[in-house]
């Protein structure tokens, strides 16, 4: 079944301040969407609201994945349903070993898969190589002492290992140099298929040269102001966001 994420009239606030004011967006398997917008438009808020971050309060609308209403679900229930967010600034979790963490997460998101520890780790090593993370990272604490770029590579590693259906990448290119960006973009393209849909949140057009989206949306003041294709992102690169009116 081709997955489908339906965001309908989504409203959300942080500390009683309304940030999202009615977002409508549908992402299907095989589709690559870019969500652009000026600073403070609510792009990262949308990512956090979608995965159920407790600091964000949904005040209206709905989030539905494959017919299942996730609006009131916990972050873990959403993850198990197949939703994944690559965080803009992934937090360090001291003491939690990267390998154990990924393994536990995989068992929770794919309880039916009886893959052994060794097989799982072998698979992990293959992908670590692809995203450019040394094997020694396996026994390190999650994101602890990682550079900005290493954190981003680890987000992508988690994505390919946990095999989600709908993926939100929040500023995945920040902190990555040109070579690293290429590795990450390759990994994203390899993972991309008819069964996976992407929502790429980005302020700049840079990453969109490596991954070409079919759909581009501009979020402004908590609402989608413009929809278009990749040409829209090119125009934004030249003219900025000022020409877009809500």
């Amino acid at each position: 079944m081709v997955p489908e994420l339906k965001i309908k009239d989504l409203k959300a606030s942080v500390e009683d301040k309304e940030i999202l004011k009615g977002v409508n967006l549908t992402v299907k398997g095989g589709e690559m969407h870019a969500l652009m917008g000026p600073n403070g438009a609510g792009k990262s808020t949308l990512g956090n609201v979608l995965i159920g971050h407790p600091n964000y309060k949904i005040t209206g609308g709905s989030i539905v994945l494959d017919g299942i209403d996730l609006t009131d679900k916990t972050p873990e229930e959403r993850a198990r349903a197949g939703l994944f967010l690559a965080f803009q600034s992934p937090v360090a979790v001291v003491g939690v070993k990267l390998s154990t963490f990924l393994r536990t997460a995989y068992r929770q998101t794919h309880p039916e898969d009886k893959v052994t520890l060794t097989e799982f780790y072998d698979r992990m090593k293959v992908h670590m190589k692809k995203v450019g993370l040394d094997e020694s990272f396996m026994s390190r604490s999650v994101n602890d002492g990682f550079s900005g770029g290493e954190r981003k590579r680890f987000e992508i590693l988690q994505m390919v290992m946990l095999r989600p259906k709908i993926i939100i990448l929040d500023e995945i290119d920040s902190g990555l140099d040109v070579d690293a960006l290429k590795l990450v973009a390759d990994e994203i393209r390899d993972y991309y298929s008819e069964n996976v849909g992407f929502l790429i949140i980005t302020h700049y057009q840079r990453i969109l040269k490596n991954i070409e989206p079919q759909f581009v949306h501009v979020l402004k003041d908590g609402k989608i102001a413009v929809d278009g294709d990749n040409k829209l992102s090119l125009r934004i690169e030249e003219e900025g966001y000022d020409w877009i009116k809500n």
């Binding site: 971050h53 993850a79 198990r80 003491g95 999650v142």
Partner: peptide, 30 residues
């Protein structure tokens, strides 16, 4: 180290339950 909302949310957003996430942090610490 810290078990704050951000740390727990991060682990939970990968499918770990609240209990599992905090146990993992505590056991990892020890």
């Amino acid at each position: 180290g810290r078990i704050g909302t951000e740390e727990l949310t991060y682990l939970r957003s990968r499918g770990l339950s609240e209990d599992e996430a905090s146990s993992m942090i505590v056991l990892g610490f020890l």
